[in-house]
Amino acid sequence: MAEMARVIQQEHGSVEGTLLSITAEAVRLIPGADHAGITLVVRNHRIESRGATDELPRRVDALQEATGQGPCFDTVWKHHSVSVPDMAREDRWPQFAPAASEAGVRSMLTFRLYTHHDHLGALNLYSDAVHGFDDADDDVGVLLATHAALALVAAEQEHNFESALATRDVIGQAKGIIMERYDLRADAAFAMLVRLSQDWHTPVTDLATKIARREPE
């Protein structure tokens, strides 16, 4: 687990890199896990399939979104974790389970990721064998999901911070161009930028980007 934490820390700042490290470490640390992926559930039960080790987790996420049911939804909204010992005999999700079994899932283990209130998620482990997971795998999975959630939140916060800095910079560049072109003070230039944004129904950041990238006439 200490080695896993170090590996994930190396990807700090890259959300996608963090997710890929989490799933790779899940497959490495849990013997029964042949595949892994992270499902993020956003507004209106829309699913984002992230950090998949291969195509199988993405196919399963697509099935869950299409049917509106499955272990990921139960993990996010009802339970801290969900175990599916034999997908072919599973009856909790009558539309999802047969399709997942046909896609190649034999057993599955999911863990809730505690991120933030409007962006929930689950760490999903898949086995190519029926009854592919045991109690020890469940214990390791809980610890892994806890570390994963912390790393994911940290990476998202750093990404948001960097995006905010980039937004501030591009608005500053656009203000500078307007100030020079129209001989305005900084506050008047920003007011013009906001007014143009409203008149053209364009977000301030998008408009600022267009202005900042425009070559001088």
Rank of each mutant, 00 (worst) to 15 (best):
139 D>E: 14
96 F>T: 05
80 H>T: 04
146 T>I: 13
129 A>N: 12
100 A>Q: 01
80 H>I: 04
106 R>S: 07
70 G>R: 06
58 R>D: 06
43 R>F: 08
141 G>R: 00
119 H>K: 10
112 R>P: 00
129 A>I: 04
116 H>G: 01
131 H>T: 01
138 D>W: 14
123 L>I: 12
118 D>N: 11
51 G>V: 09
149 A>H: 02
50 R>D: 00
88 A>K: 14
109 L>I: 02
49 S>Q: 10
58 R>N: 10
155 A>T: 03
152 L>F: 06
84 V>M: 09
153 V>E: 09
87 M>F: 10
104 G>E: 09
141 G>P: 07
152 L>K: 02
135 D>A: 15
71 P>K: 11
58 R>A: 09
85 P>C: 12
86 D>A: 15
128 D>C: 13
91 D>G: 03
130 V>H: 03
83 S>I: 06
54 D>F: 07
82 V>M: 13
101 S>Q: 04
70 G>H: 13
141 G>Y: 01
141 G>I: 09
130 V>G: 00
117 H>G: 00
57 P>R: 03
126 Y>I: 15
111 F>A: 11
116 H>E: 12
95 Q>M: 10
113 L>T: 02
92 R>F: 12
58 R>Y: 01
155 A>F: 01
130 V>Y: 02
115 T>W: 10
97 A>P: 00
146 T>C: 02
94 P>D: 03
110 T>H: 09
153 V>R: 07
117 H>K: 08
59 R>G: 03
113 L>D: 11
49 S>H: 04
55 E>I: 06
101 S>E: 00
149 A>Q: 06
120 L>A: 07
130 V>R: 12
40 L>H: 03
143 L>C: 08
110 T>M: 07
62 A>P: 00
110 T>A: 07
82 V>K: 14
130 V>I: 15
123 L>W: 03
42 V>C: 00
79 H>N: 15
108 M>W: 10
57 P>Q: 05
54 D>W: 04
90 E>D: 15
122 A>N: 04
130 V>F: 07
73 F>E: 03
85 P>F: 05
40 L>C: 07
40 L>R: 07
41 V>H: 03
87 M>W: 08
